[in-house]
């Protein structure tokens, strides 16, 4: 379970302070898929950063599997992230100097899982790119790169997936492929996912749809989100 209690976060630029999250309470159940809408600059990515421990709130508590990560050191938070969270970025962010297989190997190695070949073959099959193991990222199309990025987020079997506009850099059709893939490999496997997006095509995946506005969360009904 993920819990945010009384969380606030501001950024200071020069002499002005901009509050992006304001006294926010949010709980996400295990296996729940949450879609987060909001305008650019509304604090969506900041919220993901707070959940993953990349950023610390100015106030409030963030609980990941009942552990308050705001009390942990940077290294401890990294270890929590390593074990429990998979990241999917808008710009894919694959490591250009590693092949597809090695990109997938990395989270497994970090988790201390030595014998990883079978797991990699299996996840590549799941994302539909079984023959691309030895390819470097720059030889893949955008859609393929994002499929590998999803595979990387899942390969070490984390309970939580944080996706920051995973279809934002893709064309409509490829975006749909990715949504379908997320449905199969995330939702149907009972993982928790928080996805920041502008795309309405992902709504079908959602258990809950939230909107972030002026630092506050409001829950949207599916209809209003589509509308």
């Amino acid at each position: 379970m993920i819990g945010l209690y009384g969380v606030s976060k501001s950024f200071t630029e020069g002499s002005s302070t901009h509050t992006v999250i304001r006294d926010l309470d949010l709980t996400i159940r295990e296996g729940e898929i949450v879609i987060l809408f909001g305008k650019s600059g509304s604090g969506k990515s900041t919220l993901l950063n707070l959940i993953s421990g990349i950023d610390l709130p100015d106030a409030g508590r963030v609980l990941i599997r009942e552990r308050d990560i705001t009390t942990l050191t940077e290294n401890e938070r990294t270890l929590i992230r390593r074990d429990n969270i998979g990241f999917i970025f808008q710009s894919f962010n694959l490591i250009p100097t590693l092949t597809v297989k090695e990109n997938l190997q990395l989270p497994l190695e970090l988790k201390g899982m030595k014998d990883s070949s079978e797991r990699i073959v299996s996840i590549l099959n799941e994302v539909g790119l079984p023959d691309r193991a030895s390819t470097y990222p720059d030889k893949l199309s955008g859609g393929e790169q994002q499929r590998i990025a999803i595979a990387r987020a899942l390969v070490h079997d984390p309970g939580i997936i944080l996706a920051d506009e995973p279809t934002g850099n893709l064309d409509y059709d490829t975006g749909l492929v990715i949504v379908d893939l997320l449905d199969r490999v995330v939702k149907q496997k009972g993982k928790t996912m928080i996805m920041v997006t502008h795309s309405k095509d992902v709504i079908g995946l959602a258990d809950r749809i939230l909107s972030l506005r002026e630092g506050k969360i409001t829950e949207l009904k599916t209809d209003s989100a589509i509308g």
Binding site: E74, F87, F89, L106
Partner: peptide, 14 residues
């Protein structure tokens, strides 16, 4: 960006 990604997926600063 690459280093940021590595950090995000769990590589420690060390």
């Amino acid at each position: 960006t690459v280093i940021g990604t590595l950090r995000a997926i769990g590589v420690t600063s060390g």
